[in-house]
């Protein structure tokens, strides 16, 4: 069985990528399974999706802890401890990363078990679809090609089915298929060696004791502790205030839905990057155009 795990952010089409991959495998005559896993989080928040491909009926269910093929659609997730996209990857795992960074540097910096396959899908995606962030087709095509289990025809048919169901017109479907062809041609199938499975060992059974209602019920007695959750990792783009241009009008502060812009002692607006979700409303609304936007990666490099 080929177990595939896909990582990205809500809004990038990660779920759709898993569906296209699953459908293509099915059309190629395999058994296939695909499904996303996300909590209550929305656009911008990390999400994960899965696919299983096999020739025998697939009886396994649930999330994939140890993937054979890992497709990481967004390299800003790599160093995020809450997501840890490379978690569970071992020497049998083929790791694909959509990035401009070098494979060897990434392997060393992130202590990956093997050299990842890297390819920057953004420019290709932008060329065909006009937006570098929509990964549904490019990531599915990368996965399909690396898997060695599907042909370009199967992939195109799956694109028709899955994106057609979302109401895309013929012309847009064609653009997506051109994109798929280009990604397909840019990669070659990976070699998947038989994984040596470690036997499962049962742990000690824990017996849960009945608790008093005050402890057992979902009561929250802290105030404002939501800020423990750092939504800064949702950001794909990064607002930067140019204080030379800013006149402290605080319109950005008034308009930020997250309430993460505050005035400092001198009345200057300051962004809390631990929580800013990167909606870019502040940049859009600033009357003096004093807020620039950087891709998150550029801002990492500048730091």
């Amino acid at each position: 069985m080929l177990r595939v795990r896909l990582h990205g952010r809500g809004g990038q089409g990660i779920k759709t990528a898993s569906q296209i991959l699953g459908s293509a495998a099915f059309l190629a005559g395999h058994q296939a399974q695909d499904f996303p896993l996300y909590g209550a989080e929305r656009r911008g928040a990390p999400i994960v999706a899965f696919a299983r491909i096999d020739d025998a009926p697939i009886l396994e269910r649930g999330p994939i802890a140890i993937p054979d093929l890992l497709l990481i659609g967004d390299d800003t997730l790599l160093e995020d401890p809450q997501v840890a996209p490379a978690c569970g990857a071992d020497e049998w795992t083929t790791i694909f990363i959509n990035t401009e960074q070098e494979a060897l540097k990434l392997k060393d910096r992130l202590s990956l078990p093997g050299l990842p396959v890297v390819c920057s899908l953004g420019p290709l995606t932008r060329k065909h679809l006009g937006d570098p962030r929509i990964l549904s087709v490019s990531l599915a095509a990368a996965g399909g090609r690396l898997s060695g289990r599907v042909s370009l025809d199967h992939l195109n048919e799956a694109i028709d089915i899955e994106l057609g169901a979302l109401g895309l017109d013929r012309q847009t479907l064609k653009k997506n298929q051109d994109l798929a062809a280009e990604v397909f041609a840019a990669l070659s199938p990976a070699v998947f060696e038989e994984r040596q499975e470690k036997p499962l060992v049962a742990g000690q059974l824990k017996v849960l004791e009945q608790q008093e209602v005050a402890q057992a019920a979902p009561l929250i007695t802290a105030t404002g502790n939501m800020q423990e959750r750092k939504t800064g990792n949702w950001r794909v783009q990064h607002p930067v205030i140019d204080y030379g241009e800013c006149n402290n009008c605080l319109i950005c502060y008034a308009r930020c839905p997250e309430g993460v812009i505050a005035a400092d002692a001198e009345g200057k607006p300051v962004i809390d990057y631990d929580h800013c979700k990167g909606c870019l409303i502040c940049a859009q609304e600033c009357p003096r155009h004093a807020i620039r936007t950087l891709w998150e990666r550029e801002s990492h490099e500048q730091r």
């Binding site: 989080e41 656009r43 750092k230 939504t231 949702w234 839905p257 309430g259 505050a262």
Partner: peptide, 29 residues
Amino acid sequence: KIHDLHPEEAIAPGSALCAGCGGLEGIRL
């Protein structure tokens, strides 16, 4: 004017609502 808005935030950040949610801005204000 904007400077009359209460400077304190009554809603802490970190929630799971979508980036750019208009309703969140409404209830925040």
